[in-house]
Amino acid sequence: MAHILLFEDNLSIPYSNKGFIDEAINDHDLVIVGDAPAMWTALQHRQADILIVDLGTPDDYGQGIVTHMQENYPGTGLLVLTHGDQQDLRSQGLLLGADQILTKPVSASKLAAHVVALYRRIKRHRNIVAVPSPQWRLRTTERQLQVNESLPVDLTEKEFNFLQLLTSSSHPIARDTLNREMRIDITGDERRDTKKIDMLIYRLRRKVKKSLRVDLPVRNAYGTGYSLTAKLKQI
């Protein structure tokens, strides 16, 4: 069964794309959202095979979505619907990593054909590259991070506290909560305070990539905060 997430930012026309998909694809479940926060929340709670984004405004908003999907959900197929005056978005979106960009109006049969073809390609790719999930461990006594049986990497106190906080919640933890719990100095300047936690995580990502040769299993929840993308076991 294909798990499809549909983001339409203009719901004044009731779910026209939903009708196209329901008519042409039998074995699927479809979730519809009308704004970006709801879309990111849906993706965090359940992996989508395909995200269809119907953009109604010719600005760089769509490019931000494509970039974030490529960085944080590379296993999800991305199909973007644009309007005729969004040719720049079409070209840039393909370069940034969208799988398909279709110009509206698009027929039900054409939309369905692209969805089916994209889903088949995703399933085939998953079957080819399927590998065991990395086993992450947070060593509390030594204050270290380890993946599988590799040599662990030493963590600073704040890096360790950050990862330990993420293990305590299945939902993203807001930056201000992280700042408070990790006792990061607060200046009162929201932009500056946000940059402090972001820089700490940026350095931690580089350290893990260099030492463990894998990406840190932490996701930026698009303005909400940070969450884990894999189980992190404390030992």
Rank of each mutant, 00 (worst) to 15 (best):
D198E: 14
E190S: 05
F160E: 02
D99W: 10
G188L: 07
R137I: 00
K209M: 07
K207H: 12
F162L: 07
R213L: 08
V147W: 07
R143I: 01
F160M: 09
S109V: 09
E149N: 04
K207G: 08
R213S: 12
P152F: 15
Y222A: 12
L200H: 05
A112M: 05
I201P: 04
Q144N: 10
K209Q: 14
T187I: 01
R192M: 11
G223F: 04
L155D: 00
L102C: 11
H114T: 11
K210P: 04
R192P: 01
V116E: 10
Q135P: 03
R203N: 07
D193E: 14
R126M: 06
D176V: 10
A221I: 00
A130V: 14
P134K: 01
P132E: 13
S109N: 08
N127C: 15
T140S: 08
A113Q: 13
L212I: 10
T141M: 09
M182Q: 02
E157W: 15
S170T: 00
S168W: 07
I101H: 01
G93C: 10
N161Q: 12
L102R: 10
V208I: 14
R180C: 12
K195V: 03
F162T: 02
L166N: 01
K104H: 11
I128C: 06
E190Y: 15
I197R: 01
H114D: 09
P152R: 14
K207F: 15
T140P: 14
Q135A: 11
A108M: 15
V129R: 02
K123T: 13
V147N: 05
A221L: 00
L166A: 01
G97F: 00
K158W: 08
K210L: 09
H171K: 15
T140Q: 13
R203P: 00
T103N: 08
V214W: 02
A117E: 03
S211W: 02
R139N: 09
E181C: 08
T103P: 07
T141N: 08
L163G: 08
M199W: 13
L138F: 02
I128K: 15
K104P: 09
E190Q: 06
V218Q: 06
Y202I: 04
R143M: 06
R137N: 01
I201H: 01
A113W: 15
R180H: 13
L166F: 05
M199K: 12
R124S: 09
R203H: 04
D176Y: 11
L163P: 08
S150M: 15
M199T: 13
R180F: 14
V116D: 03
L165A: 06
Y222G: 05
E149G: 05
L102G: 07
E159I: 13
G188S: 15
R205A: 02
L151I: 08
I184T: 01
L111I: 15
V129G: 02
R180E: 11
S170Q: 00
